[in-house]
Amino acid sequence: MLAGLWLALAPASVLAQVPPPGFVWYVLDELNRASFDIEDPTNRPVPLTEPPAGVLLPVDVSRDGVADWLIRWPEDQQFCGTGGCRLSLYVSDDNRYLRVFDRQAWDPDIRTIGDEVRLEASFHHLNCLTARNVCRLAWAWDPAARSLSERPSSDGEAVVSGFGEGVVDLGEVDGRPKLPADIPAAVFDRYLAGRRACGNPDDPDAFTVSYPAVASTPDLNGDGQRDWVIEAPSACAEQAAADYGYEVWISDETDGASRAFVAAPGRWPAFQVGRAPARLLDARPCLTGEICDTVPLEWNLAARVFRPASPASLSSRP
């Protein structure tokens, strides 16, 4: 039923387009490899030569008349887990495709809202700002940023957490989350500078390294580019916690990004996405059942920093 809904959203010219060979090869390789038994290579079904129906679907998320390709991986243990089943979306960009969504999700849906097509799915309560066990998160294609950008979801949620669900699961490298390829040099340098070594009381020669968390955010200053937040690293047993909660870095043509806000320890970033640009909210972390207190902030262009929003700005814009 979901596949039928997605196909109904795409114009006939998009539906008629044939998947590029690379997508067909990718899907077949993943599906055939998932059924391979390394202990007994003869214990496997006949290899697939065509993608199963409903797995590789043409959609038009960017609304440019060129097929974007949605991969609904089969609902089995190879592609599903406690976070749902894997869903991948590639959007056409000139003569190539961009992987803009690739992660596990529950109950995914694609629908047209106004003049844009939105991808929406459900996620665990740890990624929900309000007191919910499960929440819906939504995104739409942003041609300026050439990526998906957060949007209000169909259940009325217009505020998202700053360290919630990334649109692409990049995996890990050396035991820590892999960073996006487009991270600005200034943000990467701050990420490295913010790491801390934690000793092992049982082994004086051993230590572990704690790194800050880095996440991309919606456009916060109206330049059409996505911005960044850096979360303070975890405290070591023998060291005091970091003297900040998180930092906001704004895209900058000169240095790639510049620091625009430093939150107090124990604070958490959130973003009101029912407006453009998105509004930065400085939040107190909440447990399920609590009300999250937030302080709205506004961009000061002259000083290039975020400051508490004035009552006038809060009443004049949504």
Rank of each mutant, 00 (worst) to 15 (best):
S161A: 15
P308S: 02
A232S: 15
D282M: 01
L170V: 02
V209I: 15
T49G: 05
T130G: 14
P285E: 11
S251K: 04
A270D: 05
A185I: 09
A121N: 07
C85T: 12
L301K: 15
S310C: 04
A105E: 01
V91F: 06
D155E: 14
Y244A: 00
E238W: 02
A242Q: 12
G171A: 09
C85K: 04
P143D: 07
Q78V: 07
R195G: 09
C128P: 10
R275S: 09
L281W: 08
D115N: 14
V160W: 01
G84I: 07
W25I: 14
P152L: 09
F163S: 04
S88P: 00
E157C: 09
C236Y: 03
D155Y: 07
T217W: 07
V214I: 15
N200V: 11
K178C: 03
V248I: 15
F23S: 07
G256P: 08
I71R: 05
P177I: 08
V295L: 15
V160S: 06
Y246Q: 05
L15P: 05
P296L: 06
P285C: 13
A232L: 04
G65C: 00
L129W: 01
F271L: 07
E247A: 00
W141R: 01
A67T: 07
G166F: 00
R284L: 14
P108D: 13
T49K: 03
R132D: 13
L89R: 02
L57E: 11
D60G: 10
E150K: 02
R103I: 03
T217F: 07
L56F: 06
P311L: 05
R44T: 06
F36H: 12
R267W: 01
P212Q: 10
V91E: 02
V187R: 12
R267A: 08
L192F: 08
V134H: 06
E231D: 13
R111V: 11
D174F: 10
L5C: 06
R307W: 06
I110Y: 02
H125D: 04
A309T: 04
A283P: 04
E238A: 13
T254V: 14
V214S: 07
A303V: 13
V187Q: 11
W228H: 08
W141F: 08
R86W: 13
A264P: 01
R33C: 02
T254D: 14
G164D: 01
A53V: 12
L137G: 13
W106R: 14
V168K: 02
V27T: 03
C80M: 13
W73M: 03
P143G: 04
D252V: 12
T130V: 12
P201E: 01
V117W: 07
P180D: 13
S35W: 02
D37F: 01
R226S: 09
N43Q: 15
A241H: 04
P201V: 05
D174K: 12
G164H: 01
G22H: 07
Q104N: 15
E116T: 15
